[in-house]
Structure formats: C-alpha cells, structure tokens
Write a protein that binds this DNA or RNA. Structure first.
Lengths: 110, 110
DNA sequence: TTATTATATTGCAATATTACGATAAATAGA
DNA sequence: TCTATTTATCGTAATATTGCAATATAATAA
C-alpha cells in the first residue's frame, strides 16, 4: 500500500507526526542546525554546506517549509530561509510534556 | 534513488533523524501516547486500540523499538511493551536545546 | 502431545521518498 | 532587450514505507 491512514488518528497526532517526519532525515536535521548556527538568515549557501545537489536541497527545504518548521522569503534573486519558531516550539513542548508525564509515573516496567 | 546518504552526516544528526523518523507516523505517535496513558506496561491490546491489523502494528512496534523509543520484554505468551525513557529523553533534550538557542538569538528574520 | 493464544515474519501490492540531471522561472544588472 | 544568478520544478530511477492476508513461531494450557 504505502498509504498512511491519517484519517484514523487525531489531528494533533497527525500534526506531530508530520513535523517529526520532516525531521526524519539527516539532511533536514543538518539544515535546521545550519539555520540555527548562522546569525543572518540564510539563502542558497546551504547548497555549499551540504553534500547534496541543489535540487535535492530545494526539495528538503520544501518539506521543512510545508511542515511549518522553516520559513522562506524572497530577497532579491535569492531566498532567505529561516527557522519557524512556532513549529519548533510545538514539537519542543510536545516532547517536554511527554517527558514530564514519563517522570511523573516513574515507569517501573520492562 | 530512494537511498538516504547517511554517511555524509554526523552520527548525532543521524541518530536524531532516526528517532524523529520513527515518530513520523501517526500510528506510532498513537502507540507512544497509549503506552504513556496506561499505567501497567502494555502487551498486545494496542491492537484493539488502533484501527490497524495486527501485523501492521507489530511492524510499527518493531520500528519504535529499533529506534530505541520503546522496549519489549516477553511476559508469558504475550509481550510487554513500554516506553524507553532514554531514547525519549534524548529527543526531548535535543529539542529543548534547539529551543533555547532559538530564544537566545531572538531571530528577527523573515 | 495437541490445542490455544499472542506475536512475529513473509510476501506482495500500492504508494512514497530520495537523489539528481535537465530545464524552467524569477529577479537583477548591463 | 539579453545575460547571469538563484531557486524551483520536471522527469525518472532506485529504494523505502505502509498495510494486510497468510503463515510461522513461541509459550502456555489441557
């Protein structure tokens, strides 16, 4: 099949899964970290930073963007990409909550 | 191609991506949340909880396990699955760090 | 041993992802 | 206008993922 049955899950579950999936590739983690590292918002020099061809990186950027993890705005000939705090904040708070719940129930199992 | 070039990225980037990928499916998020909800460690009644066939769920469990996010131990005829705190802790602290760095540099861009 | 129960594995079809060369589109400058 | 630069899209090949029916495996019970 290869077709995820999203309709069976809650909106929140799907939303978290979508963002997690977007970060489920080392290149996209690397892009995120690069965007975090550089002070100025970054354009196409991500291509010089990563060992992947330009179309591949463009694709990865698109996925990060559609997952709400980065933003891009036209800046002359080039495009300025940067982290979308809102998306990352959602992910971060989700995992923080999970962690909290885990600690609360000091799981004794397994 | 369809083949991720893991060798070009750092071990940590790959590790985070692997865990994120494992959570990149709503069924696996649902499994995580279910394991978190029930007090006792859970066995195969995840199958009753989710609208997916048993082999499908077994597969999802396997992926979560190999990503280090859950653990499973044999318990008679059934298997007791539970959350692997270590893995989740790693993810949580990663995103916490990212969030912290983001706040520090109050990104003004885009 | 033979059932029964619980879980895993196999095999397969449908679809998705990854990667890149070639090319298109958009903008700025001459 | 034409050209250069930057980024996106198209097309395609290789591989991965999702889902399930059928079957296998493992452990207990009778």
């Amino acid at each position: 099949m290869g077709l995820t049955k999203t309709e069976h899950f809650t909106e929140k579950q799907n939303a978290i899964a979508t963002m997690a999936k977007a970060l489920g590739h080392p290149a996209r983690i690397a892009i995120l970290e690069y965007l975090l590292k550089v002070d100025t918002c970054i354009c196409g020099d991500i291509v010089n930073e990563l060992p992947l061809a330009q179309p591949t990186i463009s694709q990865h950027l698109k996925e990060l963007k559609s997952a709400g993890l980065i933003k891009g705005s036209v800046e002359g000939t080039s495009i300025c990409y940067c982290i979308d705090e809102k998306g990352l904040e959602k992910l971060q708070s989700y995992f923080a909550t999970i962690s909290l719940k885990l600690n609360k129930k000091n799981n004794k199992c397994c």
